[in-house]
Amino acid sequence: MKIAFSPCPNDTFVFHAAVHGKIPEAPKLDVTYADIDKTNYWAAEGIGPEIQKISYAALPYVLDEYALIPCGGALGRGCGPLLLTAGGDQSPRSLAGKRVAVPSERSTAYLLFRLWAAEAIPEGLDEIVVMPFHEIMPAVRDGKIDAGLVIHEARFTYQEFDLKMLVDLGEWWEQDTGLPIPLGAIVAHRSLNKEEVTKWVRASVDYAWENPEASIEYIMEHAQELSYEVAKSHIDLYVNSFSQDLGEEGFKAVASLLGRAGAEGLVPEVDLSLLKN
């Protein structure tokens, strides 16, 4: 069976056992390691592997063909995107009529930014520019763009670019909804047996927690020059109880994000009952 997920530590940690034959009920897996922008596109076009890790923001485009697997993905707290500026007026409305860079338009980070901006900047922005992630902070520092949306490790490095945080969008979301942030989802083609896929994905998560040393070599093989300490921090941040089971709170978080984004016209409106079917 073909599967695609990123080489990031949280994904290799979760799927190590299934990939390496540690889960008897799991099929033999043919893995493609791919950035989530690629899997978002593959799933939307129906051209990718039967099982993929995609952004929750991409779910509305694929739910007709792919079912959401209620485990193996990433929801979290304290791990949201940041909106950065070079300083000056740090009020949200200072961005009215300004240009903001984002790394993708099909990401949870982008949806959170647009939902926040609809409330905080009623005058609207001048332009939203899609820019490679690694170019955003230098562009804000150098005045080429007025603000930038950043994710992941940029939470810990933006001060090196002499930038200021205008808003922590994860914190805003959690205060506004009381819910975790839906980040990455595992989806399986609807031709597959969803219950069977769920069973072995969950078993792989459980094995990872019960045998944390077993996956270290595999994680570091794909960790893209990260130190083990950074890789472990990445896992601790993104692999949690929602990775084992979305549960009612997890489903509520996903429904809230996609429902609000659909109402704002940011994604196609979907039948939210499909999240559990």
Rank of each mutant, 00 (worst) to 15 (best):
Q175K: 14
T198K: 10
T198C: 07
Q159P: 02
T198M: 04
D162P: 00
W172D: 01
K194V: 11
D162K: 04
N193G: 05
I151E: 14
N193L: 11
L166R: 00
F161G: 01
L179N: 02
V205S: 07
L179Q: 04
K199N: 12
G148M: 06
V150W: 04
V150Q: 05
E196N: 08
Y158I: 09
I186T: 07
T157G: 11
W172N: 04
E160T: 09
E160W: 02
A185V: 09
L183E: 12
L192K: 05
I181G: 00
Y207P: 06
T198Q: 07
V187M: 10
G178W: 00
I186C: 12
E160F: 03
W200S: 13
M165H: 03
A154Y: 08
H152A: 15
P180D: 00
L149H: 02
G148T: 07
G184R: 08
V201I: 15
R202P: 06
D176E: 12
R190S: 13
T177G: 10
L179K: 10
I181W: 00
D168Y: 02
L169T: 00
N193R: 14
D168W: 02
H152E: 07
A188T: 01
F156V: 09
I186K: 00
E171S: 12
A188E: 05
V201Q: 07
S204A: 14
D206L: 15
L183H: 07
E196T: 11
G184Y: 13
W172M: 08
V201N: 04
P180C: 09
L192V: 07
D168G: 03
Y207W: 15
R202K: 15
I151Y: 05
N193T: 05
I186W: 09
I151S: 09
F156M: 13
K199M: 10
E195A: 15
W172C: 09
R155P: 01
T177R: 09
S204K: 02
D176M: 05
W200I: 11
D168L: 08
E171L: 12
G170F: 03
A188K: 03
I181R: 00
W173G: 03
H189L: 12
L183N: 05
H152Y: 11
L166D: 03
A185T: 09
P182C: 09
E195M: 12
I181V: 09
Y207T: 06
V167M: 10
E153D: 13
V205C: 12
L149C: 04
W172R: 06
L192Y: 04
M165E: 15
D162W: 01
I186E: 02
K164A: 13
V197M: 11
R155I: 01
F161E: 10
D206A: 15
K199V: 06
Y207S: 12
R155Q: 03
E153R: 15
L192E: 13
I181P: 01
L166H: 06
H152L: 13
L149N: 02
G148L: 13
L163I: 08
G148V: 11
E174I: 10
D168P: 03
F156H: 13
N193P: 01
I186Y: 10
V201R: 05
K199G: 10
A203N: 11
W173Q: 05
L163C: 09
N193Q: 12
M165G: 01
T198V: 08
Q175A: 14
G178Y: 00
I151R: 06
A154D: 14
A185K: 03
S204Q: 07
R155F: 00
P180E: 00
A203K: 02
D162C: 07
G148H: 06
K164V: 12
